[in-house]
Every structure is written in structure tokens, then in C-alpha cells.
Simulated scan of single mutants.
Amino acid sequence: MAEIKTVDETHKISDKRGNGKLRREIWVSEVTGQVIRYNLAYINHNLHAHDNGRVIGYDNAHDGHHRHYFGKVEPVNFVSFEDIENRFEQDWIALRNDK
């Protein structure tokens, strides 16, 4: 199945709002237009030096849908891509508010 990368974004987070970067990569099927691959990450080398600085992340690059959190990887129940985006946003906001 052919896929197209439709989103490739990196946003710098100001020091005041938590520092680091938010990264979004999304690939969709050329045939159906549905998301078939994704990578969502909050990267901050000051908080986590391992895993290329990925503090929080969701992707389905290998071994199914999973969540990265400070180096720990755990599977997640995939409902929809929108649900994954919401989980990622909630995780990042919760981490930012804990500071």
C-alpha cells in the first residue's frame, strides 16, 4: 500500500512554556486517505537525555501502537488516530503543568 507523508512539523516550545520541541509526522494511505503511520513526540534533552531526547511520544513504527514516556515503552490500545493525538496532548500538558 502506497503512503504519503502529509505532515512533517517541528515546533519550538519557549523556555517559559516548557522548552523543547513538539514533533508531528503523519503518513496517510494514497488510496483511502486514512492515517497509516504516525510519530508524535515531545523532545527535551534537558529532561531526558536518552531516546534522542524523547520525553513523551506515540508512534506505530514497530511492534504496533505504543507510548514512550521517559524511556519506557508500553503498548497502547488503538481506537483512532484522533484518540492518540488527544492522549499525546493530555500527556504533554500534564507534564508541562507539573513543572
Rank of each mutant, 00 (worst) to 15 (best):
N19W: 08
A2T: 04
A41Y: 02
P75S: 13
V73M: 12
R23D: 04
I56H: 05
N39C: 07
T32L: 04
D8C: 07
K72V: 15
E85A: 13
A94M: 07
D63V: 06
N52Y: 10
R37P: 01
G71H: 07
Y42C: 07
Q34L: 12
R17E: 08
N52W: 01
D8R: 09
Y69L: 14
D91Y: 09
D51Q: 08
N86F: 04
G33S: 11
Y38Q: 03
K16Y: 11
F88V: 08
G20T: 05
I84W: 00
D59M: 07
M1V: 12
F78V: 05
D8M: 05
E89Y: 10
S80E: 08
M1G: 14
D15G: 06
V79T: 14
R17A: 12
H48D: 02
F70P: 02
E89K: 13
G20Q: 04
H68P: 04
H68T: 13
I84G: 00
V79K: 15
F81V: 06
R23Y: 08
D8Y: 11
D8Q: 12
W27M: 06
K12G: 00
Y42S: 05
E82K: 15
V35W: 03
N19S: 13
P75K: 11
A61W: 06
E85D: 10
E9D: 10
F88S: 03
N97I: 00
N39S: 15
G53Q: 06
H11D: 10
G53P: 03
Q34M: 08
N52L: 03
V79H: 14
L95Y: 09
N39L: 11
A61G: 14
E25W: 06
V79R: 13
H11C: 03
A49K: 14
K21Y: 14
N44H: 09
H45M: 07
R17N: 13
A2P: 10
H11V: 14
I56L: 14
I84R: 00
N60I: 08
K5L: 13
E30L: 07
D8T: 04
R96W: 03
I13G: 05
I4V: 13
E25C: 07
A61E: 14
D51M: 05
N60D: 11
Y38V: 02
E25T: 05
S80P: 09
H68F: 09
H62I: 10
R23P: 00
V35K: 06
L47H: 08
L22D: 03
L22F: 07
D63R: 15
N97Q: 15
H65W: 05
S80K: 12
I13A: 06
H62M: 08
R23L: 09
D15H: 07
A61V: 01
G53L: 08
R23I: 11
I93P: 00
V76Y: 07
H66A: 09
K99Y: 14
N97W: 03
G20L: 04
T6L: 09
V76W: 02
H50T: 05
R37N: 11
V73I: 15
I84D: 01
A49L: 11
R24T: 11
N77H: 15
L22R: 04
K99P: 00
H48Y: 15
G33I: 11
V31W: 03
H62C: 01
H48W: 15
R54D: 00
H11S: 10
V7D: 10
D83R: 12
S14Q: 05
V35Q: 01
R23C: 05
I56M: 07
H50M: 09
V55R: 02
K72N: 14
